[in-house]
Nucleic acid binder design. Structure first.
Lengths: 216, 216
DNA sequence: TAGATTGTTAATCGATTAACAATC
DNA sequence: TAGATTGTTAATCGATTAACAATC
């Protein structure tokens, strides 16, 4: 047990991490707008949150504010970016370049936070060998090599449901540490790999619940 | 206040609704596999949940189980589909047929639960007037007419961030009751419209948090 | 009946919010 | 200093889980 390990995360709620992302984007905007400082109250209002919650979220990681003043926008932005790992570019592998894969490739939201799709994998012979916006499209068998060469740690899975699990296993074998799965199926990994299953249709289903209720 | 209103939802947690969706898909699969009954315990294990939670989720809506037996798969599936409004087809409007819109159009997960994209709106003259898989692509000005004619209640927004808010206002004006927004910006509506902002990049940001932590 | 499993109440846990001393 | 706002503790709220009588 090193001295450093004492400072290890006490057990940060998932929702806190998500809110930190949201705060960061807001701070980015505020900085652009030339705002110098912001109070927890002002920040909270923008997202209909409680100011104590904002302060508590931040307090997990340190004391970033100044009593009587609030938080310095640029300073807090920089701190949060560092905490979230958004202070650097992450090369990302995209697996699957069909409809969804291609849409995710062009999606503006990823690049905005420093996620750069460095390489695309797709076994379709019509696609593999080409390249898109400077990113090569390669067959999946090149994954281990590229993973090492580009130091890839993050992959986005956008293949059909049937192949999602097998693709995932190849990613894990190639040393990928974090996977964002958009395939419409729940995939599994060991616990040393961070995995998020993004379910695009579950939100639609809860919308229809409210419609079905209201429509009574 | 009608007699019926006594049975109105007591205040169902959002997470319960999401889990009901998940149970439903599982039951669909179980039914296909020929499984006749399932206990709350078995159902819970498939999603690493607690059996009491499964029973509690269901108990909000009625008594669907049989003591000593569990739940009849087909019966429970049908009940949940009815509760979630998944016992019928919902015609959906898709606004924006760029990269993301086109991917969502072809996304298998929506159709699987009965959401059918009946009409696409896009003002790009190269697209408007064409049709895709039987769905017409129309300019946005046709929205009020189509909305009425097709009895549209649900819309998916997949336009660029800049136009998302203005598109939303047109949707609301045309009588749309539920909106799923995929544009990388947070949009707002009045309270009579159900709105979900789907943030595709926030998950990636929390993944990078764990990588940044672990990488220390 | 005996065994299994429900529906529900009570206990626990965790997250949100209020309150306030510390301090810029 | 007086006013503002933080960081943090204590109170509240809501969701999850354990426990068990009811009952198939």
């Amino acid at each position: 047990m090193t001295a450093r390990s004492h400072f290890k995360i006490p057990k940060i709620p998932e929702m806190t991490i998500r809110r930190l992302s949201v705060y960061t984007r807001c701070l980015l905007q505020l900085e652009e707008d030339g705002v110098k400082t912001i109070s927890s109250q002002e920040l909270a209002e923008r997202f209909s949150l409680n100011s104590a919650q904002v302060r508590k979220d931040l307090a997990y990681f340190g004391e970033f504010g100044v009593r009587g003043i609030g938080y310095y926008v640029s300073g807090l932005k920089a701190e949060l970016q560092k905490i979230l790992g958004l202070d650097r570019e992450w090369p990302v592998a995209l697996v699957g370049f069909g409809n969804l894969g291609s849409a995710l490739f062009h999606y503006k939201g990823f690049a905005r936070q420093g996620f750069r799709i460095a390489v695309v994998f797709d076994d379709d012979p019509a696609k593999a060998g080409r390249s898109v916006d400077g990113a090569p499209i390669l067959p999946l068998r090149d994954l281990p090599r590229e993973s090492k060469a580009r130091n890839l740690q993050i992959a986005i899975v956008a293949v059909p449901a049937e192949s999602a699990q097998s693709v995932t296993e190849k990613l894990v074998a190639a040393g990928i540490k974090a996977i964002l799965n958009f395939a419409p199926t729940r995939i599994k990994t060991g616990r040393d790999v961070r995995l998020k299953n993004v379910d695009l249709s579950i939100e639609l289903e809860s919308l229809s619940f409210y419609l079905a209720q209201g429509g009574r």
